[in-house]
Design a protein around this nucleic acid. Structure first.
Length: 406
DNA sequence: CGAGGTTCCCGGGCCACATTTGAGC
DNA sequence: GTGCTCAAATGTGGCCCGGGAACCT
């Protein structure tokens, strides 16, 4: 629990910067993010009032609290009395907005301290952008990289839109504020929408699909947890797979006809007590007893979905950066029935995949940047086939404009 | 069941150069 | 002990390639 600003270590943190993975007080936020053009692009949002360590996604109007995805989910699950609480998405911002501007963005926050204007921030203010979750549906419908191409997950949209903020102008009023969905009910956020069985693309688990990238070895997924997470029975689970059903991946040794109980068991490892899929596969004993037979690679792709955020060792919030984890943490399957809005362009899908891979890579290696200045330089340095090139020489990759010199 | 071929994944190396570190005075 | 100069070492990200594992025939 971050009680103090990660930068100064003195003030109470108020905002969270995803790019820096840091909780900052407003003063340090301005200082840090006025350093250069790159840092000004970092998107920040309010810190969760409950866990105080994750970026807030929604504001509960009843509890008057800003909540991260995880705390929102915990506090407003469909079973709880708080499920009907009205919530509104919380905007994130980049640039260097003033206290007054922040007050306008987050009108519900009464204790925004006055922050002295940062001299370096003159330009930053003009660059300020407000990304509003409420708009993200349009954003996504227009081809933004919602991972699965659905506009359904209002909460998740914060993740995506924050990554690529809408650039607005702050001339005059200073802020290009997008309308907040102030009357948004829990229904638009939670799970009152009817659950629709998902019929995936045929290439759902193909190499190129995002699910093909779900192969995370450190993720032990118990089938029972799988059911909890997806809120669906094993039989329904079969519908998650292709037309051929789950049998295409789970080949029964012997299956008594007409026994639905047996059939459902087949979707679980024989040793059904929360044994991870991976361990179930690798354990020779279990293998022998198991009534399922899955090629190891397929099994990993199918079963080792990225549930690493749900293991006991780390809080789910640690993985909110991971888009896929976020989807799953929503509880509500983000899949929508096929419709005009769910058919996104291939390009946006690819970009979503790319972003997910990058985030996964970052998380996997947990690389510690010792010198931010060097990273900043490397981030803008031109390259040829990935290698740095001398200044002024021909390059084939420019991180800044993604163009090629020849 | 073993051998050979194919596919896939992972990790290390490479590059330029600003910054950091350490030695010497 | 302090301050300065200079040389050497370090670290940064994207791409490529080789080795090994997994899979298929």
């Amino acid at each position: 629990m971050a009680a103090l600003c990660d930068f100064c270590g003195e003030q109470r943190p108020m905002v969270y910067c995803r790019s820096d993975s840091a909780s900052l007080c407003l003063s340090c936020d301005r200082n840090v993010h006025s350093a250069n053009a790159l840092s000004r692009r970092h998107t920040r949002t309010l810190l969760c009032d409950r866990c105080a360590s994750q970026p807030a996604m929604v504001r509960c109007l009843v509890e008057n609290a800003s909540l991260c995805q995880n705390c929102d989910w915990n506090g407003h699950s469909t079973e709880s009395l708080a499920a009907g609480h009205k919530r509104q998405p919380i905007s994130c911002y980049s640039g260097c907005p003033s206290s007054a501007e922040l007050s306008r963005i987050w009108s519900f926050v009464s204790d925004i301290p006055n922050v002295a204007p940062e001299p370096n921030c003159e330009q930053g203010i003009s660059m300020m952008s407000i990304s509003d979750s409420g708009l993200s549906n349009q954003d996504n419908a227009a081809g933004d990289g919602n991972l699965l191409g659905t506009p359904s997950a209002t909460l998740m949209s914060d993740l995506d839109t924050c990554d690529r903020p809408l650039v607005g102008s702050s001339s005059g009023a200073g802020v290009n504020l997008l309308p907040l969905a102030t009357d948004q009910t829990a229904g638009s956020v939670d799970s009152t929408t009817p659950k629709v069985p998902y019929t995936p693309d045929k290439d759902m688990f193909s190499k190129d699909s995002i699910y093909g990238d779900f192969c995370v070895d450190d993720a032990d997924l118990a089938f029972e947890n799988y059911e909890e997470l997806f809120g669906t029975s094993h039989i329904q689970t079969e519908q998650l797979f292709d037309d051929a059903g789950i049998d295409i991946y789970f080949e029964p040794k012997e299956m008594p006809a007409g026994n639905s109980t047996e059939q459902s068991k087949l979707t679980q490892p024989a040793n059904s007590n929360a044994v991870s899929a991976d361990s179930g596969m690798s354990n020779p004993g279990a293998k022998g007893d198991s009534s399922v037979c899955i090629p190891v690679r397929q099994a990993r792709s199918i079963l080792s979905l990225s549930f690493s955020g749900l293991t006991g060792e780390s809080s789910a919030g640690d993985h909110q950066d991971c888009v896929v984890s976020s989807l799953l943490l929503m509880g509500e399957p983000p899949w929508q029935p096929p419709g005009p809005e769910s058919s996104i362009a291939e390009g946006s899908r690819d970009s979503a995949i790319t972003r997910y891979k990058e985030k996964k890579k970052r998380r996997k290696f947990d690389k510690k940047i010792r010198y931010a200045s060097r990273k900043a330089r490397a981030d803008v340095r031109k390259r040829v086939k990935g290698r740095f090139v001398k200044a002024g020489e021909a390059y084939d990759y420019d991180p800044l404009c993604q163009t090629r010199s020849y």
